[in-house]
């Protein structure tokens, strides 16, 4: 499959091709957004809330999100919990086993930055974005299942902007400034 982008470009030149492309995109993005199957990468405390999310009270099946333990069948990896140096290769391996297109939710402070385990510890990876491209971050220690629900909805918005040909993906406004946008030296980081 040499370059789906090339196919997309060729199709754009054909009269009406753009309409076909956007229709395909619309179908693909809509279906992906409403069928985000989770790879529950629960390692620690947040895993409890991840379990709660798909269980009776919160029931993420309502949103079409079901947990599948097999990475090959899933779309979004929810990294819930602390990732240690010993665990990180396995997480990366599982991420590589997931078929494209795939997304990653960093659930909880440990997955975002190491959280409470940021300082003084020798074995914790400080944030899963050290080795995975994270799409949605959920703060909390642990976040409530409702926060994960919000993350699924946010991710759905993000998925809608994507395209079957990666070159055509639209950018969406981030609701928060990206770390690179922040003026240097003004942060109140205690380091």
């Amino acid at each position: 499959m040499a370059g789906i982008d090339d196919v997309a470009k060729a199709l754009e030149r054909v009269p009406g091709g753009g309409i076909i492309l956007t229709s395909i995109d619309a179908i693909a993005d809509w279906s992906r957004g409403y069928s985000l199957w989770m790879m529950p990468m629960g390692t620690a405390c947040c895993a409890m809330e991840l379990i709660a999310a798909s269980f009776s009270k919160f029931d993420f099946d309502r949103h079409g999100s079901i947990p599948r333990p097999d990475p090959r069948h899933t779309d979004v990896m929810v990294v819930a919990g602390t990732i240690t140096h010993k665990m990180a290769p396995s997480v990366k391996r599982l991420w590589e086993q997931m078929p494209d297109p795939k997304w990653c939710i960093a659930m909880g402070n440990c997955a975002i930055s190491g959280g409470i385990f940021y300082y003084d510890t020798y074995s914790v990876v400080r944030g899963v974005d050290e080795f995975l491209p994270v799409d949605v971050y959920i703060a909390g220690c642990p976040p409530r299942p409702e926060a994960l629900q919000d993350a699924i909805l946010r991710l759905r918005e993000k998925v809608r902007a994507e395209s079957v040909s990666p070159g055509r993906a639209r950018t969406i406004e981030s609701i928060l400034p990206l770390p690179s946008d922040a003026p240097r030296g003004s942060g109140g980081d205690a380091e």
Partner: peptide, 23 residues
């Protein structure tokens, strides 16, 4: 810890460049 880990972390003199000291 992983088998290839260097050092014994609960010793008081354990030094690891990866550790960020808490202010």
């Amino acid at each position: 810890l992983p088998d290839d880990w260097v050092g014994h972390p609960l010793r008081k003199d354990y030094e690891d460049p990866g550790v960020i000291r808490r202010p």
